[in-house]
Amino acid sequence: MTELAIHVRGLTKRFGALVAVNGVNLEVPRACVYGFLGPNGSGKSTTIRMLCGLLTPSEGDIEVLGLRVPEQAEALKRRIGYMTQKFSLFDDLSVRQNLEFLATVQGLSRQDTRTRVDELLKRYHLDDRQEQLAGTMSGGQKQRLALAGAIVHKPELLFLDEPTSAVDPESRRDFWEKLFELADAGTTILVSTHYMDEAERCHRLAFLDSGNLVADGTPKELTDKLRGRTFVIRAQSPRQAKQALDGHPDVLSVAQIGNELRVLMRKDKVTVDDLRNAAGHADDAMEIESVSPNLEDVFVVATRKHAQREEQPA
């Protein structure tokens, strides 16, 4: 996996005074499922649109599948699939009509269109509703249809912008099964998401925060960096303990999850006793346990670190 499907240097997009994407560098290997994480408005959709050639970058160089974007965007459009964040197939056409339209527009012959559409309807469990209007389908069905529409021409590279928002966990799991099938067949997939469980399934990840790429790597690389910095505290009065910890200089963040507190420290090699001291002995029955870091912790660290870097020069 040495060859890159996407290679981006210093990508920036400004909307007036707003910097939506700020100097992003990105390397996506081929046949890889690459996750794009970030809160609302962090620039995920904007980045994807620039990679597809739909938005013109303010600055930076983009190379996708060996083509320069936006200059060679038209040639690129034959080789990529793009599933938009908002459902963008035609509500007032049937499932089959939508797929046939996309297949024809993508240049499939009449015969190929028929076989390909039949195959996709079957594979995405849509064959029993092929005459239904797309607009009347449920969220999960729409999302399967949109995916089918995006891969009708067997693209080498697939962009999926928050494909699983508004989809139940069961359907989400099915959806990811389909993604891995595609990746196994050699398709490169760039998928944006809000869900950490989805992020963990990706081969590689990039975290975006207010337009900045704040961390990237494999999920394991990213979490390993935080080893020894994450703890769970069970206390009688978690709120009190949280207050004590919140102000402590070594504590980066404290989040309450039910009766537990998840604590993230600024430095590693912290012991359970250090933390007990930090919590100010508020509660003797307090149980403290060192736990392995997850991607949410990675995200908290990455965004905090970035925020500090922004503050320092000021």
Binding site: L54, K77, I80, Y82, T84, F87, L89, D91, V105
Partner: peptide, 13 residues
């Protein structure tokens, strides 16, 4: 307005 244009302009049309 309906968002279909984003789909159309990503095709070779």
């Amino acid at each position: 307005e309906r968002g279909n244009m984003e789909l159309l302009i990503t095709t070779p049309l």
